[in-house]
């Protein structure tokens, strides 16, 4: 640990230069709320650290051509307080507000949440439900865009190459007829890692009282968050009434049972997700 080199680029071009030195045992550092702990616990001991905290160009939220653009180094506090996000992707506002404590929200970043690829990461199912694209840059300045699902490949694993860095999250804004929410369940109300989390996005037809374009992101069930297409299909086009809330609850419970059969946590999670589903539903109306 004594020989770690830390590079502190101030801007994107310095970042590209820094990335040229990156090797398999180097690490990107953003807020450090995951990485520094991992280093303290000897779970990871990088020989090179590229610190993004000085790259101001990666801290922003912009609304452009029907998309929210969020710089990778934007903190949860900035996201939770941003009016564009609240208006166009409420579920992300809610997720950001429920992450950790004030201290963690002031330091932790959205790029770090994705990069950390925890099965319980709170923004991950949200970004899936919002159909976000993740912009990635390498040491040559080449940029590509990926789905969250492509980027995260397993528990703590991403498909990023060592000289690649997440630069931006791009979210198609939800139209006025959309509603969205995020709910999580941990072992206490605040500063808690999710045992379950749900992001729910629906298009609501208030004339017919039906929902369509339903998107369900689920986290903390298995190694990686996912979209529950099966449940989405069941809900699409249905009457948005109490009965449907019940269907959502029961079907999500079914999903849990299929996702983690035999797991120690199954008996609890398959029941508790019903309550959480009702919470999510109540938030939509």
């Amino acid at each position: 640990m004594g020989n770690t080199v830390v590079l502190t680029p101030d801007n994107l071009s310095e970042l590209r230069e820094a990335l040229k030195q990156a090797a398999p045992n180097s690490k990107i550092l953003a807020g450090g709320t995951d990485l520094v702990l991992a280093m303290h616990e000897n779970r990871c001991s990088p020989d090179l650290i590229i610190d993004l905290s000085g790259v101001k160009e990666l801290k922003y939220v912009r609304l452009e051509d029907g998309h929210l653009h969020i710089g990778a180094v934007t903190t949860f506090t900035q996201i939770k307080e941003n009016e564009f996000v609240r208006k166009h992707a409420l579920c992300l506002t809610e997720a950001a507000a429920l992450i950790g404590s004030n201290q963690i929200r002031n330091a932790g970043t959205i790029g770090g949440n994705i990069g950390n690829a925890s099965p319980a990461g709170d923004t991950i199912p949200v970004l899936m439900a919002l159909e976000a694209r993740i912009r990635v840059m390498d040491s040559l300045g080449q940029v590509e865009e990926k789905d969250v699902d492509e980027l995260i490949v397993g528990s703590g694993k991403t498909s990023l190459k060592c000289d690649q860095v997440i630069t931006e999250v791009i979210i198609p804004v939800l139209g006025d007829d959309y509603r969205s929410t995020f709910v999580k369940l941990g072992s206490r109300r605040a500063v808690t890692i999710s045992k379950l989390n749900i992001a729910l996005v629906v298009k609501y037809n208030h004339v017919l009282n039906t929902i369509s374009d339903v998107r369900v992101g689920l986290g903390a069930i298995g190694v990686k968050a996912f979209r529950d297409r099966r449940v989405e299909e069941i809900l699409n086009g249905q009457q948005a009434d109490d009965h449907l809330a019940q269907v959502l609850a029961e079907e999500l419970s079914m999903t849990v049972q299929k996702a983690i059969p035999g797991r120690y946590s199954l008996p609890y999670k398959k029941e508790a997700i019903k309550g959480l589903a009702h919470d999510a539903w109540a938030n939509l109306s």
Partner: peptide, 9 residues
Amino acid sequence: VDTETGLTR
């Protein structure tokens, strides 16, 4: 007690 999640406040 939340009888759906088992959380007690």
